[in-house]
């Protein structure tokens, strides 16, 4: 087997997904093949309804593809597993559990003693800046704090892969920027493989190593861009470089075509 293929952390092969409801068939995904390298941050952008969330749900094991398959570490995905963590736009926190108990949920299925679980939960509470909020309930938190809890809950059982489904889509613009920088820090410190979907082009360029643009429904690969920005500086230094602006507009042209096509 060639070296390059063995290095793929996630691979989808000819993935298609068709929904049937009543007499109507909707093709959400059509013959999508992508691969994500170990430790890579790959973002998929595309118009609403292009099937990018469906792709994440299939990789996570929540949905079965109609055709094709998903390999993680070379093994086909059959069901959800703790090697793949997922964070949703809607946070999906258990409303009847406190912040601490939400984070502990993911540790209840790990072979850990109770003190070990508590120590691990506290470690990620600190990592995500949630000290002082351990005993609050999700409804008492702002959107940004909820997303920090969701990230802590997923990170603490240490999945190899992070699947992020529009993670900042419900946040206001300022919180969104802060959370993007938090995510960059998490990614650098944990070295996880990240697959994110978003419809924000600037978010995709700012965060990713590589960006794939999907077509409108039925979703398939339209274009691919290697980002390769110099990330040494601050956020402002990065987004104000000509390279950033140029890449952002090239990707946006591709996305725009699809958005217009899906409206007509």
């Amino acid at each position: 087997m060639p070296l390059i293929e063995r290095m793929a952390k996630i691979e989808t092969q000819g993935l298609s997904k068709t929904y049937r409801s009543g007499g109507e068939t909707t093709v959400a995904l059509n013959d999508l093949t992508i691969s994500v390298r170990e430790g890579e941050f790959l973002t998929i952008v595309g118009p609403s309804g292009c099937g990018k969330s469906t792709l994440l749900y299939i990789i996570a094991g929540f949905l079965k593809p109609s055709a094709g398959r998903v390999l993680v570490d070379g093994r086909p995905v059959e069901a959800p597993g703790t090697d793949r963590g997922i964070v949703f736009q809607e946070y999906a926190l258990f409303p009847w559990r406190t912040v601490l108990d939400n984070i502990l949920f993911g540790l209840e299925y790990q072979a850990l003693s109770r003190p070990e679980r508590l120590a691990r939960a506290r470690q990620y509470i600190e990592f995500m800046g949630l000290e002082g909020f351990e005993h609050r309930y999700p409804k008492e938190l702002s959107g940004g704090m909820k997303q920090r809890v969701a990230l802590a809950r997923t990170l603490c059982y240490n999945p190899d892969v992070l699947l992020l489904d529009e993670p900042f889509g419900a946040l206001d613009a300022q919180t969104r920027e802060i959370m993007q920088d938090e995510l960059l820090r998490v990614w650098r410190e944990t070295k996880k493989t990240v697959l994110m979907v978003t419809h924000s082009v600037s978010e995709a360029v700012y965060l990713s190593d590589r960006v794939i643009v999907m077509t409108s429904r039925p979703g398939t690969r339209k274009a691919e861009f290697a980002v390769g920005l110099d990330r040494a500086g601050s956020r402002e230094q990065i987004i104000l470089t000509p390279a950033f602006a140029e890449l952002q507009s090239r990707i946006w042209m591709q996305v725009r075509e699809e958005v217009l096509r899906s409206r007509t």
């Binding site: 963590g85 949920f105 299925y109 997923t154």
Partner: peptide
């Protein structure tokens, strides 16, 4: 989404 989250975290049907 809560059910999916629990599945992703390793919870079985009974949990």
């Amino acid at each position: 989404l809560l059910i999916w989250s629990a599945q992703a975290m390793g919870a079985g049907e009974r949990a």
